[in-house]
C-alpha cells in the first residue's frame, strides 16, 4: 500500500516527483538486488524463501511504478500468496536442514559465476546500446484493468483457454508424481 501512495505522490508532481520516482526505484532496486543475491547465496533455506519474498514484493512495487497495478496485485497474490507457500511446504516435506550442516553450493560454482557474469555483460551491453537514453512516458497512468480483461478475453482467448487446461493437467500430474503410493 505504501508503495502505491508513493507512486501516486510521484505522479502528481512534476520535476521533483520525477526525482522521487527515481529515488523510489533506486531504493527498491537496491533491496531487490541485495535480496536476490542472498537468495542464491544464503545457507539457510527458510531465509532464502524470505529473501525471495522481498524480491517478489519489490517486483510488485516496480510494477506499480510502471503503472501495471493489476499485474502487481496478481504478483502479490500468486507469488507471495501461493508460490512461496508452496516452497515452504516443499522445504518442510523434504525436511531440508535449516542451515549449516549441509553444503548448499556446488563445487563448481565458479562456472555459474562465470556464466552469469558473461551473460550480464552481454545483456547490459546490448541493452545500453539498444535502449540507451529511452525515457518512459512521463505521464504513466495506471492501466485500466478492463482493458486488460478485454484483451485477455478477445485477442488472447486461445492462450487463456490453453492455460486453464495447462493448470488442470499440471495439477493432476503433480499429484500423481508427488503422491506416496
Amino acid at each position: 500500500m505504501g508503495f502505491t501512495i508513493l507512486a501516486e505522490v510521484a505522479r502528481n508532481a512534476d520535476a521533483d516527483v520525477l526525482v522521487a520516482q527515481n529515488v523510489a526505484f533506486g531504493i527498491i532496486a537496491a533491496i531487490m538486488i541485495f535480496s536476490a543475491i542472498r537468495v542464491v547465496t544464503t545457507s539457510n533455506v527458510v531465509h532464502a524463501a524470505a529473501f525471495l519474498v522481498m524480491v517478489l514484493a519489490g517486483a510488485a512495487a516496480q510494477f506499480i511504478l510502471l503503472g501495471a497495478e493489476f499485474v502487481a496485485v496478481t504478483q502479490v497474490m500468486v507469488y507471495i500468496g501461493a508460490i512461496v507457500v508452496l516452497f515452504l511446504f516443499g522445504i518442510m516435506l523434504t525436511r531440508a536442514p535449516m542451515q549449516g550442516t549441509e553444503k548448499f553450493t556446488r563445487d563448481n560454482w565458479k562456472v555459474g559465476a562465470l556464466t552469469s557474469v558473461v551473460m550480464l555483460a552481454v545483456l547490459v551491453f546490448t541493452l545500453v546500446d539498444g535502449f540507451g537514453e529511452d525515457k518512459l512516458p512521463a505521464d504513466l497512468m495506471p492501466t485500466d484493468t478492463r482493458v486488460l480483461s478485454d484483451a485477455i478475453f478477445s485477442t488472447y482467448l486461445v492462450p487463456f483457454e490453453v492455460i486453464s487446461v495447462l493448470l488442470l493437467s499440471a495439477l493432476i500430474g503433480a499429484i500423481v508424481i508427488a503422491r506416496k503410493d
Binding site: 531487490m32 538486488i33 536476490a36 537468495v39 542464491v40 559465476a113 556464466t115 545483456l123 545500453v128 518512459l136
Partner: peptide, 25 residues
C-alpha cells in the same frame, strides 16, 4: 524514468538467477 533502469535491474536479477540455478545444490 529511464527505460534502461528497469531493464538493467531485470538483467541483474536474471543473471543472479542463472548463477543460482547452476550453483545451488
Amino acid at each position: 524514468m529511464l527505460l534502461n533502469q528497469f531493464l538493467i535491474l531485470a538483467a541483474i536479477l536474471f543473471c543472479t538467477g542463472v548463477y543460482g540455478v547452476i550453483s545451488r545444490r
